[in-house]
Design a protein around this nucleic acid. Structure first.
Length: 484
RNA sequence: GGCCACGUGGCGGAGUGGUUACGCAGCGGUCUGCAAAACCGUUUACCCCGGUUCAAUUCCGGGCGUGGCCUCCA
């Protein structure tokens, strides 16, 4: 099976050829840990988790390295720390904020069924590599010092702007931001900047006396080097440009410019590499109820709220996210969550037996895998799952091959069905169903029906319906389930 | 203002130069005391205007709409 991925750089879907099939390497930009992650942050985490699973399937679990960083040095973190812990020394407050947010993030994404990446480097653990990279860029003439800042010189890189397709000279025209006076060129960006007193600070590179801290973009160049190049023979000590490229770099489409463009500039110029990564993948943006998500609009939806306050099982949120192809925009709505719950509830019904007692090996159908291999066409893969569910419905055997395959497919997609049954959803909202009360009422109703007392029979059925219980009268008696 | 995406039936959402996506909902039927479930059948599509083509929802151009980005972070 051939994996094809859409590459933002070339704007086309291409067959994926790993540099080394024994060491497939992927880097995805992770969160800045200063606040609860919102549902938009969840998208790349879920999307690239599916890709991670697929790569592990295709190349072997031990042959894929997935790096997702944690950004724990950033102005927003500083601001949040000062606001939340005004009495505390800033660095201590920052540690409080980052540790707390970091934990929340991991709890949230675990609930969404995401595997932990192979490595989750933290920016503050890689300051040394950032400094080394900056020194290199200064030495090579790609960066310069100005007022204790180190800036990347965009004109020093003729290819700058390829990823976002922004022509160098036209880029300034529409800019509406004031340009710092010390910049040689308005497009130059910061690699290192001086820290204000009390802020996190490290010894500066390039013989700058004042302590400082890294710019935003350099951390990803440094961490991808440290985790995806150096361990595989590349990095600063290696002059072979081919050793200084990894396979896949991912993130949200909002990162294409400037973040990824600048990462490319830093990495390629530092290592003399023709490319930073062979494939650039970007997930589409997300709106909430038709509106841009923003705190001022009051429609800022965090993963935590959905899981804890609204009691949605993570699998349902994950499924809702995966119902849309990763490059399409999503309008995240409550109605969409309800639909996802109904669909997954069906998968739960048909796999309930095989989840408690697997009687044979389930197999992820080729149709599912080939859909995923076609640039992660998860919606198409899900349509195959519906077909399996259809087979299950037609089968008399609760342990049919289709049921095993459906289970295997859900497992493959990271969809944990253990909490998604209609009953569990109902009980999360309305409290436990009193089963003995239900069976008492059913017995009473059966009596009434035996006596052809349809009025009483229907009254009891209505009473049960009010409890969320729906009856099925069959030849063998009456069964019940929770309303969908 | 510049650059870049996206626009499919009631809703969600794939895909394609000519043939049923799929799911949910709706409608009709079988079944049922009546229902429910199940099964069978079935309605409503490709933003607008041009162009290319034997043929466009699918390619090209323009328009409209929505969204993203426009650098040291709002």
């Amino acid at each position: 099976m051939e994996l094809k991925l859409y590459d933002t750089l070339t704007r086309e879907k291409r067959p994926f050829k790993p540099l080394d099939p024994a060491n497939v390497r992927m880097y995805v930009c992770g969160p800045t840990v200063y606040d609860f992650a919102h549902i938009g942050n969840a998208r790349p985490v879920i999307v690239f988790d599916v890709l991670f699973r697929l790569l592990r399937h295709l190349y072997g679990a031990d042959h894929v390295t997935y790096v997702r960083n944690i950004t724990d040095v950033d102005d927003k973190i500083n601001a949040r720390a000062a606001q939340e812990y005004p009495a505390m020394p800033l660095n201590e407050a920052i540690r409080q904020v980052t540790e707390k947010t970091d934990k929340q993030f991991h709890d949230d994404v675990a609930a969404l069924g995401c595997l932990p990446p192979s490595i989750e480097p933290r920016a503050t653990e890689h300051i040394a590599e950032m400094r080394e990279l900056i020194e290199r860029l200064v030495a090579s003439g790609n960066a310069y010092v100005a007022e204790d800042n180190v800036l990347f010189s965009v004109p020093s890189m003729p290819d700058y702007g390829q990823l976002s397709k922004r022509p160098l000279d036209e880029m300034i025209a529409g800019a509406r931001v004031e340009v710092a006076a010390y910049k040689k060129d308005p497009r130059d960006f910061v690699l290192w900047k001086p820290s204000k007193p009390g802020e996190p600070a490290w010894p500066s590179p390039a013989e700058i006396k004042a302590p400082g801290r890294p710019g935003w973009h350099i951390e990803c160049s440094a961490m991808s080097m440290a985790e995806l190049l150096q361990p595989f023979g590349g990095g600063l000590v290696c002059d072979d440009p081919q050793k200084n490229v990894f396979d896949i770099h991912g993130g949200g489409v909002d990162l294409v410019f400037p973040h990824h463009e600048n990462e490319i500039a830093q990495s390629c110029c530092a290592f003399g590499a023709p490319r930073m990564a062979n494939v650039w993948m970007h997930n589409g943006f997300l709106q909430v109820e038709g509106e841009k998500m923003s705190k001022s609009e009051g429609n800022f939806v965090t993963i935590h709220e959905l899981l804890k306050d609204s009691s949605w099982p993570g699998a349902i949120l994950r499924f809702q996210m995966l119902k849309t192809h990763y490059r399409q925009p999503i309008d995240w709505t409550r109605k969409g969550t309800d639909s996802a719950a109904i669909e997954l509830g069906v998968f739960d019904i048909f796999t309930e037996g095989v989840r408690s007692r697997q009687t044979r090996a389930g197999k992820v159908p080729e149709d599912v895998l080939s859909a995923l291999a076609d640039d992660l066409n998860v919606p198409l893969a899900i349509s195959v799952l519906h077909k399996l569910a259809e087979e299950c419905r037609k089968s008399d055997d609760p342990w049919s091959q289709a049921a095993h395959d459906l289970r295997a497919s859900c497992d493959f997609l990271g969809l944990d069905l253990s909490e998604v049954s209609y009953r569990k959803l109902y009980e999360r909202q309305h409290g436990r169903i009193d089963e003995s009360r239900v069976s008492d009422l059913i017995n009473e109703r059966s009596q009434a029906r035996a006596n052809k007392n349809w009025k009483e029979s229907d009254r009891i059925r209505d009473e049960l319906a009010a409890m969320g219980v729906v009856l099925h009268d069959t030849k063998d008696g009456t069964t019940w389930e929770i309303a969908r």
